[in-house]
Amino acid sequence: MNLNLWITSLVYGLSMSGVLFLVSVGISIGFGLMRIVNMEQMVYYTFGAYMAYTIVTSTGSFLLGIIAAVAVAAALGIIVETQLLRRVYSREMMFTMVVTFSVFLIGIGIIQYIWGLDPKPVASPMETMIRIVRVKVPLYRLLIFAVAILVYIGIQLLLNRTIMGKAIRAGIENPNNVQGLGINIYKIFTIMFVIASGIAGLGGALYAPLIMVGPYMGWDMLLFAFITVILGGLGSIKGTMVSALILGQVMALGGTLWAPLAYIAPFIVMFLVILVKPTGLFGVRGTAFGFES
């Protein structure tokens, strides 16, 4: 076996896992806390990537690009949450799905107007290579993964160590309870939503140098993000992290074996997992449509 190949694949997989986690954690929170399927998360992801492109090309500073990406994504999140989603929390899931999907489409349309259709390259922030067991790997890919881990720890701390986190966890278990405790659940929703959209923007910005930034980059990522969330189980942040790790490696290994597999392997994995275990790896049992028993 060619060690070189496998280590490169491993590192590639880790960076993919990082991106997957960052873009899908918002969907996981949306599922778990607000009981909505927020497909428009990919708008923040795409905007994040484009902000990185704009700032990096004009100023040359990648750090500034990331800050701008997070800020713009969070701002968009506030607008969408307060103006639109708040009206649909009480509606059935089917309705919110179509609504958030429309927001996603509108987002793509706006991006096309601002930046046009052509894919844009983003200059790589660092070319540094480091050695792992004789094999040179790009440091940047490892950094993406490190950032994802930091975000994961941050969210866990937020959920487990703060009062707001306790309220949120109570809300996930029983949304009616929290209201009864005298906590304004809508405020919590907004805060969590802004955090989620900011993280998605961060994911977009970090991923931008590795790909070509285009208006449709959210399409494929949408599906991958949902695969991540579904594989991990609804509302479970830990599950999302674990499944991001698995999927990243699946994509990397698939791509190493046969290039087209990188794209399709996650779909096949999700397809099989849902058929075998319809609740995902860490999900709780729910009713299928209205089926009891």
Binding site: L223, P260, F267, M270, F271, P278, A288
Partner: peptide, 28 residues
């Protein structure tokens, strides 16, 4: 029989996955 026992959101997304797999199969 496999699909319709799934919950609404899973049903929507497994179909999306199927669609992507379908394109892959016919294309590649």
């Amino acid at each position: 029989p496999f699909f319709i026992r799934l919950r609404g959101d899973y049903f929507a997304l497994i179909n999306a996955a199927l669609c992507a797999i379908g394109v892959f199969v016919f294309q590649k």
